[in-house]
C-alpha cells in the first residue's frame, strides 16, 4: 500500500501540491487524472523519490520514503518499474539493449535468459524485430512502447506510468491498456498511472483520483467518478471548455 499524507511542494513561488492525500491499495490500478500542468508528474516523482516534499509524507508498505536517501531508498526502488512521460530511453543504446539493461544491471540474469525475456517483452508491445534500432530511429509511439517494455520486463511489484499512451493511435491505446491489464492479472503489481485517456481508463482502473489545485478533488471507483456531482470532475471528464461552467 502506498500512502500519501499532506504532500506539499512548491517551485519558487508556484505552489504545485498543497497538502495532497492519497491511498493506493496493494495490487490495484489507480489512475490519476487532472489538468495539464496540474502537478501529476510532480506527484509521481515524489512517489518514486526523485523529488523531496516541502511537507508531508509518502509511505510505501509502512516505510516512509520521504526522508530516505541512498541505499535505503534504492531498496524500495528495487521493487519499482517506472515509465517516464518522455520515455527516458537511453539514446546511446539500441531498443533491445534498453530493455535488456535492467535485467543485466539490476537482476544480473544470464545472457540467454535476458535474450529470451527481451524478445518476449518486445513482442508483447508489438515491436518484434525493432530491437536493433536506436530510440532516435523509431516513432514517438514506438518509444513509449519500448519504455513500457523496459519498465515491465523486470516484473516489478509497483509500476508507475506517466501518460503511457499519450500520442498513440486509438488502436494502440487499447492494445497498451490490454497489455497492462493482462500483465496486471499475471503479476498482480500495484500500478499508479497518470493518464488523459478518458473514457478508456475507466475500463482498466480500480480507482480513479482527480488531481485539482494541488489536492485530490475526488477519488473512487470509475462508476462513482463518472457519476460524480463535483463540478470540477464533471467538467474534466466531459472535456467542457473552461468558460462553459458559468453559462
Amino acid at each position: 500500500m502506498i500512502k500519501v499524507q499532506g504532500l506539499t511542494k512548491s517551485f519558487g513561488r508556484q505552489q504545485v501540491l498543497r497538502g495532497l492525500d492519497l491511498e493506493v491499495p496493494t495490487g490495484s490500478i489507480t489512475v490519476i487524472i487532472g489538468r495539464s500542468g496540474g502537478g501529476k508528474s510532480v506527484l509521481l516523482k515524489h512517489l518514486i523519490g526523485l523529488l523531496h516534499p516541502d511537507a508531508g509524507r509518502v509511505l510505501v508498505d509502512g516505510v516512509e520514503i520521504t526522508g530516505l536517501r541512498g541505499r535505503a531508498l534504492d531498496e524500495i526502488r528495487q521493487r519499482y518499474g517506472v515509465v517516464f512521460q518522455g520515455g527516458a530511453l537511453f539514446d546511446s543504446m539500441r531498443c533491445a539493449e534498453n530493455v535488456a539493461f535492467p535485467l543485466r544491471e539490476k537482476l544480473h540474469l544470464p545472457r540467454p535468459e535476458i535474450v529470451r525475456r527481451v524478445e518476449a517483452a518486445l513482442h508483447q508491445v508489438g515491436l518484434e524485430g525493432m530491437g536493433a534500432k536506436y530510440p532516435a530511429e523509431i516513432s514517438g509511439g514506438m518509444r513509449k512502447r519500448v519504455a513500457i517494455a523496459r519498465a515491465l520486463v523486470t516484473e516489478p511489484e509497483i509500476v508507475f506510468f506517466d501518460e503511457p499512451t499519450t500520442g498513440l493511435d486509438p488502436i494502440l491505446v487499447n492494445t497498451i491498456h490490454h497489455l497492462i491489464l493482462d500483465l496486471h492479472q499475471k503479476f498482480r503489481f500495484t500500478a499508479v498511472m497518470v493518464s488523459h485517456e478518458i473514457p478508456e481508463i475507466f475500463e482498466i482502473a480500480d480507482t480513479v483520483a482527480m488531481l485539482h489545485e494541488g489536492r485530490i478533488a475526488e477519488v473512487g471507483p470509475p462508476p462513482a467518478i463518472q457519476a460524480s456531482s463535483n463540478p470540477v470532475v464533471r467538467q474534466f471528464i466531459r472535456g467542457e471548455p473552461e468558460n462553459a461552467e458559468g453559462r
Binding site: 523519490g49 534504492d74 531498496e75 526502488r77 528495487q78 517506472v82 539514446d91 535492467p102 544491471e105 539490476k106
Partner: peptide, 9 residues
C-alpha cells in the same frame, strides 16, 4: 535518462 537510472536503483 539519469532519473531512469536512479529509479532502477
Amino acid at each position: 535518462q539519469i532519473d531512469a537510472l536512479t529509479v532502477m536503483a
